[in-house]
Design a protein around this nucleic acid. Structure first.
Length: 751
DNA sequence: CTAGGGTTAG
């Protein structure tokens, strides 16, 4: 039979080829192509060929179950189909390379379809340059090929290149399709480039895509990413055939633009329409609830998740973890975190940042360490969250460890990570180490400069903060509102009243509108100079309603200068604005105590009781050999308590000999001073110092962290101690750092 | 011959 002869011929040819070349899977399509032009092939022939394929595939690194399935059908012997399957199953650039050369051998390269597939696969494997090379081999790419290369760039976040290819495409006279617009718009939102987006929008009209759901959805996302949520809404409202993506885009758009309530409103509209949300839609909705911090409602979405059987969707677990972590429900968040089996950086980041944000800094650091020991790849967000946690722990040793880790990681040049390190060192007590990070940071942006300025301010090194500000301007970097918060704080903490006043007024030259914090700093400045009436005038002339920070600054100043009427006035505002903040009551109580108005002190205590407020007990932490030890008065649980109290007695004796007299008011009226900062502080600071003295070699700097602000007595005592024992003592209180040395403090006795 | 939307952080 003729057919049979053909078959035998072809099979023998195939065998010959098989034996001749060191045969591999990739040459299979070329062999099959040699078998052409046999179109009608008998089932017997196919069976033989199938055995052949089977042999090839089983010895190949690519497992082709899907292909073997296809091979049983008659399409299997189509070489292009084999190529297609090979491309689909490639996992490495070397595979693509072999396929490419076989395409050239078999003369299939003119098949745009296969090349498009090859380009798409290259970009999915991250081989963007290779994809571009493939593209460049074509003289007349069609729209699909253009789409493939634009998509490749866009998906790799190379938005500029994507837009450049789009321009080239237009110059080549190729008409875009909906996919072109989709990817071009994605590139515009990635940059983001609103102007370009507008131009593309016009072209979309010209090409008649105004009711194409794909393109319109991309427009909704574009305008949302550019902060033009109103325009997103217009596009969304004009869309008659909305799908689940349209709804998700507008919901997440509102959530991203700080309008979570509107996002949730649209979600309920969506539920009233017959549109069923999928898991991505639910992720967006959860994000909106996260911003609203409405746990009750968030839980109802969790119910929705379970009802739809999506509770094992990994990304929904991430969103639920993140939502609960952000709302402070870290235990609940942890239970979702623990449910997830596949490792995901985003999930770990959500948990770490959740811990850090809610005062569980140690847990955050532990989780970060666990991540490293489990060899889970971190990203720059992990690094930043972990660094943030370290700055809250406050241990300089931990800070050093973190810096060392980052320096050896791929994030040593990451500007955002370095900014976090600067902030961390400053908050862990060493502004000089912060400066080293600052100096090694390349391409300093305004945030890097500002962090360093804020750091100097925190430590009362106002001169250096101001010098750095001039250096920054010299460097051509424009200050922002945060820069000025740092500068003004620095001036406050260093007593640079005139400089601060001038800086405040220079803000308008940079077009920066002062915010509450800036006004509070000025009030603080004037207050420090004793110019209380001026401070009050300043407040009454503020263009914005004075808030807690402003009145708080005034009250502090009144306490220092014992200005009763003005202090009471400020306190009245504070109690209205923020009735449950213990600190304000303590401040007022201190004001009364300093004026020896003991019955007023008592009244404040009653006021606190009525509100159900309890005082925060003071404690001090000291870091010894990288370990933090906590002290509060009367706490005898420390294993070295006896030695500590002996040292303390010695210290008190030497203080007395050195002429230290405790603040008279607080000693006189034991019964009434219960709520003042003196009792709250409880001199835990001195316990920590005593422990530090007996646990470290002479001359070692002591680093102490307190939860409250410095109290007058402890501050005076610590100054003297630093001189008596010849040690530098660094104390971080709730607001700032004090560097005690030779009987002086860097704060100049004003805080 | 391609999917498109989302999650961390600031």
């Amino acid at each position: 039979m003729v057919e049979n002869t053909h078959m035998t011929l072809n099979l023998s040819l195939a065998r010959k080829l098989f034996n001749a070349s060191s045969f591999n899977l990739f040459s299979l399509p070329a062999i099959v192509r040699q078998l052409d032009p046999i179109k009608a092939i008998s089932s017997e022939f196919r069976a033989s060929l199938y055995t052949f394929f089977n042999h090839c595939y089983s010895s190949s690194p690519l497992h082709q179950d899907s292909y073997l399935e296809k091979a049983k059908s008659h399409h299997a012997v189509d070489p292009d189909a084999i190529f297609e399957s090979l491309i689909d199953n490639s996992t490495h650039k070397s595979h693509l390379n072999q396929i490419h050369s076989q395409l050239l051998v078999s003369g299939s390269l003119d098949s745009l379809i296969l090349t498009t597939k090859l380009i798409n696969k290259s970009s999915n494997l991250g081989e963007i340059r290779y994809a571009r090379n493939l593209f460049d081999e074509f003289c007349n790419p069609d729209v699909f090929l253009w789409d493939a290369i634009i998509r490749s760039y866009s998906r790799r976040d190379m938005f500029g290149d994507a837009l450049e290819m789009y321009t080239n495409m237009q110059m080549a006279g190729v008409s875009p399709d909906s996919f072109t617009f989709m990817h071009v718009l994605k590139a515009c939102s990635g940059l983001p480039a609103l102007e370009m987006g507008w131009q593309v929008h016009a072209q979309i009209f010209r090409h008649g895509f105004q009711s194409d759901v794909l393109v319109q959805n991309a427009l909704v996302a574009l305008y949302a990413k550019c902060g033009q949520i109103g325009l997103s809404r217009v596009v969304f409202d004009d869309l008659c055939d909305r799908n689940v993506v349209s709804w998700t885009s507008i919901i997440s758009g509102y959530a991203q633009n700080g309008e979570p309530m509107e996002a949730l409103r649209i979600f309920s509209q969506m539920r009233h329409s017959s549109m069923r949300p999928d898991w991505i839609a639910l992720v967006s909705v959860l994000r909106a609830y996260t911003d609203v911090e409405d746990l009750q409602q968030g839980k109802s979405v969790q119910g929705c998740v379970i009802k739809m059987g999506l509770e094992y969707e990994p990304d929904l677990l991430i969103s639920l973890t993140s939502m609960y972590a952000k709302c402070g429900q870290v235990t609940l968040a942890r239970s979702f975190f623990d449910q997830m089996e596949i490792p995901s950086v985003i999930l770990w980041n959500a948990m770490i940042s959740g811990y850090a944000k809610n005062g569980f800094a140690e847990e955050a650091v532990d989780l970060f360490r666990e991540m490293i020991s489990k060899k889970i790849r971190i990203d720059s967000i992990t690094a930043r969250s972990a660094i943030l946690a370290c700055s809250q722990v406050g241990s300089l040793e931990l800070a050093r460890w973190m810096d060392d880790y980052i320096m050896r990681s791929e994030y040593s040049d990451d500007v955002l990570v370095n900014t976090a390190l600067i902030d961390m060192y400053a908050k862990c007590g060493s502004v000089d180490l912060a400066r080293i990070v600052f100096d090694r940071t390349l391409d300093k942006d305004v945030v890097v400069w500002s962090s360093m300025i804020v750091g100097y301010g925190l430590h009362g090194r106002g001169r250096e903060a101001i010098d750095l500000y001039y250096a920054m301007k010299q460097d051509g970097v424009c200050p922002n509102d945060v820069t000025f918060v740092g500068l003004l704080t620095a001036c406050n903490h260093s007593g640079l009243v005139e400089e601060g006043w001038e800086l405040f007024h220079s803000m308008r030259y940079f077009g920066i509108e002062p915010r509450h914090q800036h006004y509070a700093c000025v009030v603080d400045l004037l207050g420090r100079a004793g110019r209380l009436d001026e401070a009050y005038d300043f407040i009454t002339n503020m263009p914005i309603e004075p808030g807690v920070s402003v009145w708080g600054a005034l009250l502090s100043a009144c306490k220092i200068y014992r200005h009763l009427t003005l202090g009471e006035f400020a306190a009245k505002y504070l109690f209205t604005l923020d009735p449950y903040e213990t600190g304000h009551y303590v401040q007022l109580s201190n004001l009364y105590a300093s004026a020896r108005l003991w019955n007023h002190v008592g009244k404040v205590r009653v006021l606190m009781k009525e509100k159900g407020l309890t005082k925060d007990y003071g404690y001090s932490l000291i870091e010894i050999n990288g370990k933090l030890q906590a002290f509060r008065v009367g706490d005898k649980s420390h294993p070295r308590y006896k030695e500590i109290s002996e040292e303390l007695e010695k210290l008190e004796k030497r203080l007395k000999e050195g002429g230290f007299v405790p603040h008279a008011e607080s000693v006189l009226h034991d019964l009434n001073y219960e709520e003042t900062e003196e009792t709250l502080c409880n001199h835990s600071e001195r316990l920590a110092i005593a422990y530090g003295l007996i646990s470290t070699p002479p001359g070692t700097t002591l680093r102490i962290t307190k939860n409250l602000r410095a109290c007058v007595n402890c501050h005076a005592a610590t100054k003297l101690i630093s001189k008596l024992v010849n040690r530098e003592i660094v104390v971080r209180d709730a607001k700032r750092f004090h560097h005690f040395k030779d009987g002086f403090c860097s704060c100049g006795d004003y805080w």
